[in-house]
């Protein structure tokens, strides 16, 4: 699904990623843990296609080189990033936006666009499943949302767009236990053989609810250690200092 080799990323002449490798197969869930400033968010940005970085190394998704593919096309091809800080978009109705977004992705996949009625049906089912108050959908996109509501909205979008590679960028930060469970449920109920997940997090907390197949430690722009869930548990006890 995702093949990253010797990935380097530089912004404002500062090298953040310094030769990162990661290989994710369909159906796998990987967690990347790391201290502040280790390059976690940069990795999420680079994978989603955010501009402004100088990139070198190999970056392949489903066997296709991602280098020349812009953000929107990556999204249409099935890469989804749940943002650490989802942006507030004033004046844009959440539900209308979700419909526009879904239909862009469906069109790119060669599927029929959904009309308003079918879309509303779909969104109703998913909101209910995630325990999301439908009134949120008639509000302006992320405007005045609490931290928890913003993250739930990200998971809702993930469910609606049905992507293949899902990257969660510190989705657990600043969440209370209920919102954390919503996020975890959303991820767990989406897991199947065709989807892959990359969960980027600072704490082990989320991994109590989402069981990763692999855990990697990112420090100073590189993966310094890989292992199983036990690695995460060990990190929680010893902290990052022991490793980096």
């Amino acid at each position: 699904m995702l093949e990253v080799k010797n990935l380097k990323a530089t912004i404002n002449s500062k090298e953040i990623l310094k030769g990162l490798d990661i290989f994710i197969k369909p159906g796998e869930l990987h967690a990347i843990m790391g201290p502040n400033g280790s390059g976690k968010s940069t990795l999420a940005n680079v994978l989603s296609g955010k501009t402004g970085y100088e990139i070198s190394g190999l970056l392949k998704y489903k066997g296709e080189n991602l280098e020349e593919i812009p953000i929107d096309e990556r999204a249409q091809k099935g890469i989804f990033l749940a943002f650490q800080y989802p942006t507030e978009i004033p004046g844009v109705n959440t539900s209308n936006f979700l419909k526009t977004s879904l239909n862009k992705v469906r069109k790119a996949r060669g599927e029929k666009e959904l009309d308003t009625l079918s879309f509303l049906k779909k969104i109703k089912v998913i909101s209910k499943e995630l325990g999301i108050d439908e009134r949120m959908l008639s509000r302006q996109l992320n405007v005045g949302f609490s931290g928890g509501e913003k993250k739930k909205n990200e998971i809702l979008q993930m469910k609606i767009l049905e992507p293949n590679l899902i990257i969660l960028d510190e989705t657990d930060s600043g969440l209370d236990i209920d919102a954390l469970k919503t996020v975890a449920n959303g991820v767990n109920s989406s897991r199947d053989k065709k989807k892959s997940f990359l969960i980027i997090t600072h704490y082990q907390r989320l991994l109590n609810y989402i069981k990763p197949d692999f855990v990697h430690v990112l420090a100073n722009g590189k993966i310094v250690k890989s292992g199983s869930m036990e690695l995460a548990e060990q990190l929680e006890k010893t902290g990052y200092r022991e490793i980096s």
Binding site: S48, G49, K50, T51, P70, I71, D72, R74, A75, Q76, F80, L81, F83, P86, T87, I89, F97, T100, S101, K104, V105, A108, Q157, L161
Partner: peptide, 15 residues
């Protein structure tokens, strides 16, 4: 950042 957010949901820059 807002443009990036919207583009990451499949809209092109113009949209």
């Amino acid at each position: 950042d807002s443009i990036h957010y919207l583009m990451s949901r499949g809209l092109n820059r113009k949209e």
